[in-house]
């Protein structure tokens, strides 16, 4: 039985780049940095494609972001996703996590799906709550932090949820919302064929109004606000010592001097 899967992805600043906030409105500065697909979302896309390859069906990518996020969509389509929806509207700039989850849930609500898959967290905001919020808004079971996903198409999904000291097995009926951790698989690199094929795959671009979003959107309606931000002062250089046979003793001396042992 085929599985239709929605994968939520986010375009984020490259974690190797010098990241900062805009001085004017204290939102994420996306302009000055290279952007990439949020790394853990690649694992989500990979898992969806593997499920599609095993069971048939379609993988739809959903993202919200500036038009530049088409690059991230193209990457997901090159990996093997079938189509995409980009929610892009200047009015959404500065949305908080509550607003973003509302917007994504409204877009997902227009699609046909058995499973929604997200990455467990974005490397920029690092909240790790999108899957729980989508589950809450869509009224679906939450199976988050999966390091393994097993599906019985048309019936159920079971995950191994990563915990501090092992894992928890969680199971639910379909449809459901799953988030995955990077342990789950090894994302494929897009093949040349995949890259060429992506060019003809359909991408729908929606405005906020198209998605049925109304009221105070973006920064004006956000549920939290950044008041100030300051770069952390660099750590002042400490003492660097070369091992001359007593390196371990020297480290222990330091720990004693700092009252750490």
């Amino acid at each position: 039985m085929p599985m239709n899967i929605v994968v939520c992805v986010k375009q984020v600043p490259d974690t190797w780049a010098e990241r900062t906030l805009n001085a004017s409105d204290k939102t994420l500065d996306r302009a000055k940095v290279d952007t990439v697909m949020n790394e853990i979302d690649e694992y989500a896309v990979e898992e969806a494609i593997r499920l599609k390859e095993a069971h048939g069906g379609e993988v739809t990518i959903v993202t919200m972001g500036p038009d530049r996020a088409l690059d991230t969509i193209r990457k997901a389509l090159s990996m093997g996703a079938d189509k995409a929806v980009l929610l892009s509207d200047e009015a959404l700039h500065g949305s908080c996590v509550m607003q973003t989850s509302d917007a994504l849930a409204k877009v997902i609500g227009t699609l046909e799906y058995d499973l929604v898959i997200c990455g467990s967290e974005a490397t920029d905001s690092r909240l790790s709550v999108m899957a729980p919020l989508l589950a809450e808004r869509l009224g679906l079971p939450q199976l988050s932090l999966a390091r393994k996903v097993t599906v019985e198409p048309g019936s159920s999904v079971t995950i191994e949820r990563q915990t501090e000291n092992g894992y928890t097995v969680v199971t639910s009926a379909l449809p459901a919302v799953v988030s995955v951790v990077e342990k789950i698989n090894e994302p494929r690199y897009p093949s040349f064929k995949g890259i060429m094929a992506a060019k003809s795959k359909p991408t729908t671009t929606l405005t906020a109004a198209d998605a049925g979003l109304e009221g105070e959107l973006g920064l004006a309606g956000a549920t939290s606000q950044v008041d100030e931000f300051t770069p952390r002062p660099p750590r002042s250089g400490g003492e660097i010592v070369k091992n001359e046979g007593d390196g371990g003793t020297k480290v222990a001396d330091f720990l004693v001097s700092q009252k750490l042992i």
């Binding site: 750590r235 250089g237 400490g238 003492e239 070369k242 091992n243 390196g247 371990g248 222990a252 330091f254």
Partner: peptide, 18 residues
């Protein structure tokens, strides 16, 4: 660059001694 105390040496010597 971050370390308050840095030991430049072979960890296989330094760590057991520490």
């Amino acid at each position: 660059e971050l370390a308050d105390f840095g030991m430049v040496g072979d960890l296989f010597d330094v760590v057991p001694q520490l």
